[in-house]
Amino acid sequence: MIEYDAGIAEQLSQVTTTSSVQVRVGTSNSEMVLASVLQPLIQGFGMGGVYITASKTAPNVIEMMNTIGLDVSPIHFIDCVSPGILGGTQNPYANIGYVDSPIMLESMLLRSLHYLENSGSQQNFVILDSVNALSIYNEERILAEYLHTFINTCQNRQILSLIVNVPDQTPAGVLANMDLYCSDLIDRGQVVIN
């Protein structure tokens, strides 16, 4: 049985559905941090949600969470990676939707909103994993514009937004934007070497 990061759960208990949370992770602890974010949201608060993944394929994320012991079947995945892999969309999971490419930023947002409208849950979140993966495909200025739109749209619709990034690999301008527009910060970005 793994130990989730209780500090993250504590921080999340203080946010509202109009909050936008910057989630900083390190290169070696991202899986644990993500699991620690999802666990209180799904199991603790019973929220509905969408996980937008541009870093790994959705089946990969699902299996990783299952290994950790977290059941993510109640949430929906928007997978921007699998369509770029031949045969990538062949998988047994029913809770995955696809966007052809990480450059189709508006589609990610719209599909998330579409799913949440039809999910029936009262409180919802959207987690964007990750800004770094998106920056491979999108120029800094469009990414900055997108995050601004993304955060404001979610706030307007009372959807909790969580934006994952590895800070020392995020373009400075984008990082600065997130610092400006996000209401909360969960910082596990620096790996502590004992």
């Binding site: 508006e106 589609s107 719209l110 599909r111 579409h114 514009e145």
Partner: peptide
């Protein structure tokens, strides 16, 4: 406006200016 054809119909969101 970016237009998405979802199962529940047309959805619109402002198109990113730099895109």
């Amino acid at each position: 406006y970016a237009l998405e054809l979802t199962r529940s119909g047309v959805m619109l969101t402002p198109m990113l200016k730099w895109g």
